[in-house]
Design a protein around this nucleic acid. Structure first.
Lengths: 337, 337
DNA sequence: CTGTTAGCGCCTTCAC
DNA sequence: GTGAAGGCGCTAACAG
């Protein structure tokens, strides 16, 4: 039942080398021979052994997908996109999740588990420290970052600063002046992380418009509960805010819930805008900066594949974000200017 | 830099066979020898080649995780749980996603991509047809199903019938009589799929209580948009419903949005209960039958590992669901009994 | 265009 | 308890 390349060779009346060439579509094989080999392989139900092929060729046709979580909107979508792009090229995706431990500044990624096992590595949204990135690079595999690049490395992601500025500009153009920002934990935020960049963008746009930022930035967990808690904390100290820019849709939805908790209406009392394009946000009527996580996964995987073949790739691919206005933003009810 | 087992053997002054035994914790190695080998391996930064090990041993220490999507609550959580359980045992998770095409009843899963590549297969929430299951079994790898078992196969999941009955009983006990059910696409629903079983449970409980079910069951996509659309369709033909049991939290949330679209209040006008324990539902105050998807992934992975070692495992593990009452259910406002 | 010949790096009997 | 040797199944030069 488990036939090997020699069985196919015998059945087709050729050598194993020819079988190998024929089946892999390499040149220097007659169409007739190739066809005969194919038929023999089919009839025997031959499937090559990846281990043997890897051992002999040094290539695994597998890439390592490393990520802190799979159960979050951005991550799940990137992973899904990447996996599908890889499968089209007959590459396998090996999944590695790592706890992101806020307490310990330990080495969170042990590159040795990847050694000799993959042809390339895709890092999804893992805000790594320099030393961790260097350890990964020491493996000498092609490396692509999605959603949380590292300076100087091949990256696909957003222009987070511009995204934030557009969101804030939208709010400001509507007439808002006290525009708060809900961001992530400061711990998670290395200088090149999306959270930090979005906060920078918010601050830049506010400043450019002569709007004050003091006391309007608040940090919390990057999820619904975090957004809700942050919004409550914010309202406690700044009941005058009329607009909020949240660094993710999940946080934005949390903010909306907090406002609802207090009997405040959206957008009548407070406008809210997020980032992502989360399905639930769409249904809740959340105005947001939409990004395409799935395609970022596809693109990153494709670039990795290119790098593996030795082809040149751009050092950075920036995906667009587009402002989608839904019901959660409007002109401020009471103008104080 | 890339040292092999022979380098370690030489450095430790032993044979490669001893290195192999020592490093894998096999018996018949002196503690002293083992220690010496370990130290040599460490110093050389030796990492065994998985390909070579697989080729020689016939075992891959890898399991295939096959699933239709990763970007959905249940799937993402099961995958995350399974991957972590596997990594603890030094097993790798190979991710395979398959399009679930509603149009074509084609063979959606090509088992050959798994051949010689894994030691076992975990099927996550893929409602497979008998022939597909048989094709998978033909690989002769240990096989575990999570969330959508097949009759007679090793399965971890819920008692979907009982879960549905509990949800319906909760609604009925509150005094509701016109209790609708939002279910999935009939196409997706093989007899042993969770959607069908939940519908069965709903019908059973309704019937047991002498409540009519005609015109109260509606099918749609298993997500927020689907739930919303289904709820609208339902209200068009049965404006008298006072309660809804949705087969998932996402559908339940969609239903809530539909009710809001029409100016109906939850739970004042209509009570809603879902299934899952989705984070967003928690924040929206959705009453639901909570299940633990993450632990189902952990359990399924552990069982698969047991099966690989030849250990016996129970043919079916049923996870509990618990009714968590939040704000979306209440007594009907107008009693019509 | 096709066959021959070496390995790839490790595991696994089998002797010792 | 340890070593020697023969594969595991395929690929990759070279010849021809």
């Amino acid at each position: 039942m488990a036939h090997g390349i020699v069985d196919v060779a015998r059945a087709a009346g050729v050598s194993t080398a020819t079988v190998s060439r024929a089946l892999r579509g390499l040149p220097n094989v007659t169409a007739a021979t190739r066809e005969r080999v194919r038929r023999a392989a089919d009839e025997l139900g031959y499937v090559p052994s990846p281990s043997a092929a890897s051992l002999a060729s040094g290539r695994t046709r597998t890439i390592g997908l490393i990520t802190p979580w799979v159960a979050h909107w951005f991550f799940a979508n990137v992973i899904e996109g990447a996996e599908r792009a890889l499968r089209v090229e007959d590459f396998d995706a090996l999944l590695y999740t790592f706890e992101v431990n806020r307490e310990v500044r330990r080495m969170r990624v042990d590159p040795d588990v990847l050694r000799r096992r993959v042809d390339g590595v895709l890092v999804v949204g893992l805000p790594l420290e320099s030393e961790e990135v260097e350890a990964l690079e020491a493996l000498e595999y092609p490396l692509v970052f999605v959603g949380a690049g590292a300076p100087g490395r091949v990256t696909v992601g957003l222009d987070d600063v511009a995204t934030a500025r557009t969101a804030v500009a939208h709010l400001a153009d509507l007439g808002h002046r006290a525009i708060a920002h809900l961001s992530g934990e400061p711990d998670d935020c290395l200088p090149w992380s999306p959270a930090v960049r979005r906060a920078q963008g918010w601050r830049a746009e506010m400043t450019a418009r002569g709007l004050a930022v003091d006391g309007l930035e608040i940090h919390g967990h990057f999820d619904v509960a975090g957004g809700r808690a942050s919004m409550h904390a914010l309202l406690d100290r700044r009941p005058d805010v009329t607009a909020v820019f949240a660094a993710s849709d999940e946080m934005a939805m949390g903010a909306i819930l907090a406002l609802r908790d207090r009997g405040l209406r959206v957008p009548h009392d407070v406008s809210v805008v997020g980032v992502d394009g989360h399905e639930m946000g769409e249904h809740l009527g959340l105005t947001t900066m939409v990004q395409n996580a799935h395609d970022q996964g596809v693109t990153a995987a494709s670039m990795l594949l290119e790098m593996i073949t030795g082809a040149p790739v751009p050092p950075e691919v920036v995906f667009p974000t587009v402002l989608v206005e839904r019901g959660s933003t409007a002109r401020p009810h009471v103008t104080k200017s």
